[in-house]
Design a protein around this nucleic acid. Structure first.
Lengths: 226, 226
DNA sequence: GAGCTCTTTATTGTATACAATTTAGAACAG
DNA sequence: CTGTTCTAAATTGTATACAATAAAGAGCTC
């Protein structure tokens, strides 16, 4: 993409993912244009892209808002992600190369290092976790699958709550990656799929639990303020 | 969407689906704007939408072309569609209402009528087939699933080859719909999913066979011209 | 003629002005 | 006070002019 349009896209996206723009917030083109330092034209372009990624929702009368997801919506997204990443793992197992396995091992090594100490390095974990999953997706060699999953990963809410994962949960994730690598080495497509589906489902339950305890904390907070 | 933008979207889309614009054709904004009778702005808007639906592909340097799909790409799309429509059927079975079942029966009745004579009415078949599948999707009640599938259905190539389906194949489709309805009535989610997955996979094989014989005909045609 | 650079032309990207639509709120009736 | 209608402000949609970039091709060198 071009410069101004890209600037707008990344700026707005970052504001949504970081939470600077909260779910439900209204988005006016002119205001965003000023923030991004470009005209409305590239902003509109960027908003279209963000809308197609479901980060932005449009009202019946064409006004835009930051998408707000119910827990049900999020569960849906995870269910679909489990299905599609499972398929990606199955396909990848059949097409896997030694080179890709070496890279997966390298990524997961860094994942392991990020969680081995007392204070896990969540940023490093997330970064290498993403590389790990993206490489599998790329080996699966289906542009369409890649495109569908792109909509489901990179969810703002998930990034923001990742920091609430416990060290034990992060380590579990690391182990499951290792199991995946083992399945890939053996070319065991069914097993790779099974592990991946479980891996994603577990991530959802971790998320849901964290979400619940956060909600409880919020409620307590509200009570204290009242 | 707004008027001009919608006009552009539907006009271009129709040209792609009908084949007036062939796969691989270059798409210039100005030219399309003239055809649609609007300015470049809404055309660009429409092209973004079509791009996100994968009907348009963009080169590294931002030039646009009508997407051309290899048989592998199409097989991918069908594989994903089977997976996702299977999930839709499973979910729908759990949430099905008497009203929806009545509507499904009505749609499939028309499907049956369209294929019972000697000369099947393919347009009517396709229209009610689409209604049938869309209603299941809507009962499945997952905006995200709906959005993902939207990208996979409505494939130009498939619409164009639908006319090559044999009467027997169309009738088989009708019967499978009836089996689905029966599964929904019993609330049998697993069975509904199984039928749906088979239904979509069979559609692919039908397509692939038709495609092959068309390709053969093409080659014969080329030979005669040479 | 192959390959290179430079110029010309075509195409896409951006800003901006204006039109159409929607929202918000004032003024008013009951 | 409630609800309604109308007006003004804000917001989005479209056209168009111009800027930036990419493609095409002329002319040159070897």
């Amino acid at each position: 993409m071009s410069r101004a349009s890209d600037t707008a896209y990344h700026t707005i996206r970052e504001m949504i993912i970081s939470g600077a723009l909260a779910p439900g917030d209204a988005l006016a083109e002119e205001a965003l244009a000023q923030i991004c330092g470009v005209s409305r034209t590239p902003v509109r372009d960027a908003m279209r892209r963000l809308e197609s990624e479901l980060l932005i929702r449009r009202s019946g009368t064409q006004r835009s808002f930051v998408a707000d997801w119910s827990l049900d919506d999020i569960q849906d997204a995870f269910e679909l992600r489990a299905l599609l990443e499972g398929l990606a793992a199955k396909r990848a197992a059949a097409l896997m190369t030694d080179d890709a396995i070496a890279k997966l091992s390298a990524f997961n090594k860094r994942v392991g290092e990020a969680v081995e100490g007392l204070n896990p390095d969540v940023e490093t974990f997330l970064e290498n976790n993403r590389h790990f999953h993206n490489l599998i997706l790329s080996v699966a060699d289906s542009a369409r699958l890649e495109k569908l999953l792109q909509t489901l990963i990179e969810q703002p809410i998930i990034w923001r709550t990742a920091h609430h994962y416990s060290t034990a949960e992060l380590r579990r994730s690391y182990q499951e990656h290792d199991e995946l690598i083992a399945a890939f080495k053996r070319g065991d497509a069914e097993w790779a799929e099974t592990i991946m589906v479980g891996h994603i489902r577990r991530a959802f339950h971790t998320y849901a639990d964290a979400h619940n305890s956060l909600a409880v904390k919020d409620r307590e907070h509200e009570k204290r303020r009242a």
